[in-house]
Design a protein around this nucleic acid. Structure first.
Lengths: 208, 208
DNA sequence: TATAGAAAATAAACAAGGTTTAGTAATTAA
DNA sequence: TTAATTACTAAACCTTGTTTATTTTCTATA
């Protein structure tokens, strides 16, 4: 009997529609200006219907947050081919910042927004995030093993690298650089990244 | 006639009371769980009264944000005595993180929260923030001039340093490190900071 | 095909919050 | 004492997230 399957599929499709619509509205109007009612209106259903597909608003945010991590990880995997761990680190940094600034709403949900972290903890679901973290960590490990980085344990160096790019992204996304002209921000982001990585590169060259 | 002065003073005192109460509630219950009504109840006035002293909720947040910057800057000034710019950079980093983690609500308002940045832009008030940024920038400048940092323009290096510590603080404050044990977080924060600064130190020693 | 039961959707309401309005109480200057 | 100013508040408006009770739609079965 295909009816049950069709129903299941329709249910899945409606769930996706809600998520897609929510994300679209987030991008259009900013996460803060999107309500359950707004989403419901857009898909032409009553607000209560949303609650047949999601426990609460937080679950919608959490789902989109997870989608964001999928996207980020699949982007990271496009760097698999890079052999030199230092060059890879460099590209990862650029890619991370690019992802964050091109998908500020996704990034916000993933790494900044409140009400999402609680869900993550509640559900004990940090695998999607960990995957990306590990990808970076593995590369840092390679950097250390190949002598690009010295005097640091893997986790501290990884956390520092992550913090650097997150800090840049978060400051920009949350409007803490609005006083600066856009081109200048671009410049210090790229320059800051280079500076951070160079602090290791040169060392290797010197150490060699 | 002292009546007018008294009234002015009383007005100021009430404003301060509202701010103090708001901050107290933020710390107690989390910024998200504090309402104008809640503040009003705590000080035993009607909610409408709040609006005689502040244009809207955002203005309260903005005021507390400014107070936070005052506090941070006065902390930075306690490092005035340090001569060596590298040691000073190190201490500034530790102090920054310490401030952020000991005053997460203030820090949140200053550097993360939404609805505050808009006010900053609206009021064109980034002097308080700039002061602290300049303090860091001046020190980075000294670092460059004394050869601790090479191959970087001042602004890029300053932005990188700021981003690093902000990134650490923001990730922790917004619960993106909850999956890690607390001592481990402490360890990578301190280790990450050292790692970042060492990336320059060693170079200087090598360059000397 | 008619109908009981399940599934899907909704209308209406609740509670909480930010904010405004219109009016009351308190204070001050004349 | 009174008119005017100032300080305050009750009550309402509007927007949210969420729940409950009810209605509509669908599906399997007699």
């Amino acid at each position: 009997m295909g009816i049950e399957e069709r129903k299941l599929r329709e249910r899945e499709e409606k769930r996706d529609l809600i998520l897609k619509t929510a994300m679209q509205l987030f991008i259009e109007k900013g996460i803060n200006n999107v309500s359950i009612r707004g989403i419901a209106e857009k898909i032409e259903y009553s607000p209560a219907t949303i609650y047949l597909y999601f426990k609460d608003k937080g679950e919608i945010l959490h789902e989109l947050h997870t989608q964001g991590f999928e996207k980020l990880f699949s982007l990271q995997r496009t760097l698999d081919y890079i052999k030199d761990p230092l060059e890879k680190l460099n590209q990862m940094g650029r890619l991370y910042i690019k992802f964050a600034l091109e998908n500020p709403d996704h990034y916000d949900l993933m790494f900044i927004a409140k009400g999402v972290a609680e869900k993550i903890f509640e559900k004990q679901e940090w695998d999607v995030g960990n995957r990306s973290f590990q990808y970076l960590r593995d590369n840092i490990k390679d950097c250390i093993e190949q002598g690009y980085i010295v005097d640091a344990d893997i986790d501290s160096a990884t956390f520092a690298a992550w913090s650097l790019v997150h800090g840049m992204a978060a400051l920009i996304i949350r409007g803490r650089c609005v006083m600066l002209p856009g081109e200048f921000v671009d410049h210090v982001v790229q320059g800051g990244l280079k500076f951070f990585i160079n602090s290791m590169t040169i060392k290797k060259q010197q150490l060699k």
